[in-house]
Design a protein around this nucleic acid. Structure first.
Lengths: 343, 343
DNA sequence: CTGAAAGCGCTTACAG
DNA sequence: CTGAAAGCGCTTACAG
């Protein structure tokens, strides 16, 4: 990596390294025009590319922003990542990406590495149950923040730092209300893992709202937080409900806590010969872009995923004079579509 | 960012900075046991986190791997990114992520920044027309490589470096063959932008294979390389073909050069009252995971997206003794599903 | 406006 | 086995 050095540029331009440095990055003081030109020319001719590592060491900040997600191939996270990416670019930061596969050890490792790289901020998009932030992670974040690092979480509680929180609980309740208003009376739930905050909030919000209408889910099952989790949970649900193709009664309305799980569920039911919304209805959550063209169209709660990502970056980069701990709540918008349509 | 320093650790352990350094990262020479213990204890007590920037400066490499994609929210790229991520983790590299929105200026900027950060390798996943790699980019890559940087491209030609190339041309030809074998005789094509290599290869492979069967597409239209591009192209196609719901004749079979475009097309046709595969058939390319549960199920060419990503990383990190320029061809696998089923 | 010099936090020959 | 010292490539007070 013996690239062209600032010193090389300075020599060729016949100035000191200090001057070359000042010319090449916007120090306010503009040097004599001739000088600046010579330096810039020399830099161009030599193909000089500043060494960001050295700059980082000499300055205070690295210009790095760490993003931690469960799985970048999951459309929920990739949409968020897109927003993070865009906002980071606007702020001239580089994104360091890590995927954890929902493994807390890997997550802790990612945090350590980001801290080692002295990222200016870390955005943690994986969600977990409250209080579950282990001591070790918490201690590291503490030191990190003490040294000027910023941390922002998406969709999970944290005793400190910034947070952008989709209103999972509230929006799920609204969804339940809308479904009841649409005429549904029999419900079931496909939940996610019990240690994922987002999953639990959505389930609770929904079930509590049902309770206010004097209703209770007939069955609750749960599975992994992905397509296959929804698929297998849906099979169990069908068995528990003794669902039959073409049965007479009004269909049960299932709330799957994510769109991706809902899609897996529909696929499972289709394999059983059950049709949505005729034999069974289902609503999801997230409004995943790639899934918008699904048939039947999916009733869901629209979350502005990209915006969530960019807001997280904004929070992370905001000056934190006094109010250091900022939370931004992101409301969801209910959209009723074919998958819950009563005939 | 005044974090704990190696010096701090050394002092507390009562050893020199050099010794502390040797203990804390696996220098082969094992110091006296007592010493090592003291250093490690001091590091733990102080919460020492090595400064990767400083290490990078002192060593040769940064441990950074740059990944450039068009759009991380596009499932094609997010699947690749997942593979890159996994392979990078296995190689203990950190992923630097950039999205270009298909803007070549932004792409060039991303490359510069990655080089400035002295990434050990750069994986370029955006695809473009051959020869279109502009001078400036080429020059930068040249210097980068001269300084030890590795570059690997996915799905595009490059005069140097490594490349992993999905066999777009060949697989599309196979798809055409399979469709003809299934009984299709009338074809049309929904292509992508003319400056995207992947798009052009797929279209050409398909059309050339048709030619070998003495067939020619009735119509060709094209659109942006995304869902909306497929959607609008499909409308134009329907108009050109004067498609009517419930028409008698055997349906035209459309090849959309990506699954995502195919999905957009199906949505457009549905809006027009046309049904797939009854009124019109369609095949895609990629086998996007999230789309596997689509109805009708989509005939497509399966590409091992994650593997493509991890192979790219392997290539980038491989020792390049003599054979510096490596290419890996990735075959596609044809899967006929409902969307091209003839009744 | 410009330059000499110290310093950012590590690693690594080179001696001992 | 261990330490003193130079060096990685920049930035930035501090003088001039």
């Amino acid at each position: 990596m013996a690239a062209v050095t600032l010193q090389d540029v300075a020599m060729r331009a016949g100035v000191s390294q200090a001057t070359a440095s000042r010319v090449l990055n916007g120090s306010n003081r503009v040097p004599g025009e001739g000088v600046a030109d010579r330096v810039r020319t020399a830099a161009r001719e030599l193909g000089y590319v500043p060494n960001a590592q050295a700059q980082a060491l000499a300055r205070a900040s690295t210009g790095l922003l760490g993003l931690i997600v469960h799985d970048i191939a999951d459309p929920y996270f990739s949409s968020i990542a897109r927003g993070v990416q865009a906002a980071a670019r606007a702020a001239r930061k580089q994104v360091l990406l890590a995927g954890t596969d929902r493994d807390f050890d890997i997550e802790r490792e990612a945090v350590s590495t980001f801290i080692a790289h002295r990222a200016d901020a870390i955005v943690l998009a994986g969600s977990r149950q409250s209080g579950d932030l282990d001591r070790e992670l918490e201690a590291e974040f503490g030191r990190y923040r003490a040294n000027g690092g910023r941390v922002v979480v998406i969709g999970q509680p944290l005793a400190f730092g910034g947070a952008v929180e989709p209103e999972n609980h509230f929006a799920s309740a609204e969804l339940a209300d809308a479904l009841v208003a649409a005429g549904h009376r029999q419900f079931a739930v496909i939940g996610g893992p019990g240690n994922i905050r987002t999953s639990v909030d959505r389930r609770n919000g929904f079930v509590e709202a049902l309770g206010r209408h004097g209703l209770t889910p007939l069955v609750e099952v749960s599975g992994d937080f992905d397509r296959d989790g929804g698929h297998s949970a849906a099979r169990r649900l069908a068995a528990a409900l003794e669902l039959q193709p073409g049965a007479a009664a009004p269909p049960v309305c299932v709330f799957a806590v994510t769109d991706v799980m809902a899609i897996g569920a529909i696929a499972a039911w289709r394999e059983l010969g059950l049709s949505v919304p005729r034999d069974i209805c289902v609503a999801g959550f997230d409004d995943i872009p790639t899934l918008r063209d699904h048939t039947p169209s999916l009733t869901t709660v629209v979350l502005p995923l990209e915006e969530i990502g960019s807001r997280a970056v904004d929070l992370a980069l905001r000056n934190h004079d006094d109010a250091d701990d900022l939370r931004e709540r992101i409301p969801g918008r209910i959209v009723l579509r074919d998958s819950t349509k009563l005939s």
